[in-house]
Simulated scan of single mutants.
Amino acid sequence: MRINKTSDDSMIPSVEFEDIISKQGRLNKDVRLKINSKQGIYFEPQDVLFGKLRPYLQNWLFPSFYGRAVGDFWVLRANSSLLSEYLFVLIQSPRFQSVANISAGTKMPRSDWNTVSNTSFSIPVQSEQRRIGQLFNVLDDLIAATQDKIDAFEQIKKALLQHLFDQSWRFKEYSELWTPHLLGEITSKVTEKNTENLYHETFTNSAKYGIVEQQSFFDKSISNEANLANYYVVRENDFVYNPRISNSAPIGPVRRNKLNRTGVMSPLYYVFRATTAVYPIFLEYFFKGESWYRFMYLNGDTGARSDRFAIKDKVFEQMPVKLPEKSEQEKIGALLQNLETVMNQTQERLQKIRDIKDSLLKSLFV
């Protein structure tokens, strides 16, 4: 049944949409530390919270404490024939989600209680409900633990990128000072264009995924085949600076071509190639860190477009880069590369667990 009792008692925790990790049913903070006197729907342990505003965001929670659901929540409580742990899984099922997403409103769509409450759902006997609830609880715990591991790896990677490149962390066998260079001294701008139309695969540079094939990334071709003769040729291990800014790349990403093939990129990108003075993987991780941001902010121009960072090529080439001896470059590159390999493997494992959960939700709730 649906609970409507409200409370503004600031002595009990409040839960808002912003406190819930979407689709995971977990809190992203200790809500007991929040100061909030807003009125909300009173809930008890084992109640189920379902976010009815924009239900496709999948904000739900199975709390183990007393609290207030502040905002557009339904608070659902199991009856004598329904176990609460099964109810929590039921609201995640494709059938429930389909009905809940038959919403009212366009700008601020909300699930319609009349539609959901008048929909029939198959409910097994309680012994089966309990086993289903336990199964999904194990999967949710496994998903949460794997995500926590990924988050921890991200923090380790961030710390390594900072401290290895500011030289506060060194391998014990190295003590020589790093030598200063300008980017233009250790790299060369790629000016080769696809004038003979030898290459037809257009690349794009994603902050998250690196250099990828444009057609598969956007699910369509953005470039015009007739204009590819003016595009730059990007060979294996070439670097590309994409001036488009994003939350994860506030001045635009620089990424290395690791596709093991040659393609082309728009002249809007700056393409450059490492000389023998620098180990390409070392330079790749230099640009994955933030030590070069200050130079960009100090020397960038104000662009006409707010989604792009503007800096002249000749200025970009004046960026200071400190280099250790080649063997230390290789060691730093190998360390970070191995860490990213483990991170990618853990991310793949997480996706497989999520796929198993989604498959079970489809097959067990028909």
Score class of each variant (00 low, 15 high):
185 E>K: 00
327 S>H: 08
4 N>S: 13
218 F>L: 09
101 N>Q: 15
170 R>P: 06
79 N>K: 08
186 I>P: 03
335 L>D: 01
213 E>K: 09
297 Y>Q: 14
158 K>W: 02
114 N>Y: 01
135 L>I: 12
192 E>W: 02
109 P>W: 01
336 L>W: 00
99 V>W: 00
45 P>K: 07
176 E>N: 04
98 S>Q: 13
341 T>M: 00
3 I>E: 06
343 M>Q: 10
149 K>G: 06
25 G>V: 02
156 I>M: 10
38 K>C: 11
134 Q>E: 13
224 N>E: 12
346 T>I: 07
237 N>G: 04
241 Y>P: 06
289 G>H: 05
141 D>Y: 01
19 D>A: 06
322 K>V: 15
313 D>H: 00
17 F>A: 14
101 N>F: 09
306 S>A: 13
30 D>E: 09
305 R>P: 03
56 Y>H: 13
169 W>R: 01
132 I>T: 06
262 T>N: 04
116 V>K: 02
211 I>A: 04
148 D>Q: 14
234 V>L: 13
57 L>H: 08
128 E>K: 09
253 P>W: 04
313 D>M: 03
337 Q>P: 03
168 S>K: 03
268 L>K: 05
295 F>P: 08
271 V>I: 09
132 I>Y: 01
301 D>T: 14
365 F>A: 10
39 Q>S: 15
70 V>T: 10
84 S>D: 12
140 D>R: 06
98 S>M: 09
353 I>Y: 03
58 Q>P: 01
222 I>P: 03
337 Q>S: 14
